[in-house]
Computed example of a mutant assay.
Amino acid sequence: MPVQARARKTVEVLLAAARELLIEGGPEALTTSGLAARTGLHVRNVYRYFPNRNAVFAALAEQFNQRLETELSALSGLLDPTADWRAEVQKAIGVLVMVGAHEPAIRQIRAALQTSPELQAMEVASDKRIATLIAQALHVRGAPASLETLEVRAFVLVSALGAVLDRMLLCDGDQQRLMLEEIESMAETYLAKSIARGPSTLG
């Protein structure tokens, strides 16, 4: 994101237009020339901030990932071994859903992330950061495994949840509610295997 206020405003205008194009026509509809036409900017000004459409996808994904990771990091109960871990898992999944609901083009952005190795790497990096937070939460609860092993387990869970949440976005309200319940159950069942049993660790 540029430092100067005027440049930041221009970037926000371009990203807002990018969301509109994605919602209207999917990833294929987002082009630098399309952004120029939608915003009234000259195409060379678009290139000044985004040299290609992958750069636009990356900026949209980065904004979403930053909001998501900030919200998850604020869940202090995750790292509190006395807190009910099942309740904290439900809160974390609620954050995933809430942040996604506030990004109108989330489905199209996540689809775009699969279009190039560079964008896929961005998604993996974000998933790993979230997995590290989950692994630390398991570790403070006395999970009988190394932190490295817990990070791998958490990464598998985060990746699986992301895939299922993508499918959930394609469903209607009632179906989404049922899928959300299944997602919570899946996460709890998987994490329960990593958490040392006993009243001092279950919270």
Rank of each mutant, 00 (worst) to 15 (best):
A36K: 12
Q120V: 03
A17R: 03
Q66F: 04
I130G: 01
E69W: 11
I130H: 02
V140M: 14
V89C: 03
E151Y: 04
Q63H: 03
A196M: 13
A17L: 10
S126E: 06
I130T: 03
R53Y: 05
A135N: 03
A163V: 13
L21Q: 02
L22I: 04
R107I: 06
L60C: 01
A18V: 05
L170C: 04
A163E: 13
V43R: 13
T32V: 03
S185L: 13
H42L: 06
Q114G: 00
P104V: 11
R67F: 00
T115C: 11
P117L: 12
V156W: 05
N52E: 02
H139Q: 09
S76A: 12
V43D: 05
L75Y: 02
A192Y: 15
L165T: 02
I23M: 06
A74Y: 08
I130P: 00
Q136A: 07
D174L: 08
R48C: 09
M168L: 07
E12K: 05
S146H: 00
L75P: 00
A163M: 14
T32G: 01
N54L: 00
V3G: 10
Q136V: 07
P27F: 14
L72F: 15
A121Q: 07
E62V: 04
Q90T: 15
S76K: 04
F64V: 02
Y190R: 15
T189H: 15
I23S: 04
G203K: 03
V46C: 06
L68R: 00
S126R: 01
N52C: 00
R167F: 10
R38C: 05
A111T: 09
Y49V: 06
A36H: 14
R6G: 06
E12I: 04
E188C: 15
Q90V: 15
V152E: 13
R153E: 06
D172C: 08
L138S: 01
V97P: 08
R19Q: 07
D172K: 10
G100P: 06
G198N: 13
E118G: 03
S200R: 14
N54D: 02
G100F: 15
L157W: 05
E88Y: 10
M179G: 11
I134C: 02
A154C: 09
T70G: 11
V56G: 01
T132D: 13
V43A: 12
A87I: 13
G203S: 04
A187G: 14
S126K: 02
F64E: 05
A74C: 11
P51E: 10
R48I: 12
I106D: 04
S185K: 15
T115I: 08
K91H: 05
A5P: 11
R153F: 05
G173Q: 15
A143E: 11
E181T: 10
S73R: 08
L68P: 02
L96S: 03
R48K: 09
R48Q: 12
Q63I: 03
E118Y: 05
T10G: 05
A131Q: 02
F64M: 15
R53F: 09
G198I: 11
H139Y: 10
S146M: 00
A61Q: 12
V156S: 10
I183T: 12
E62K: 05
Y47H: 07
F57N: 01
D80R: 05
M179I: 12
G94H: 07
L157F: 11
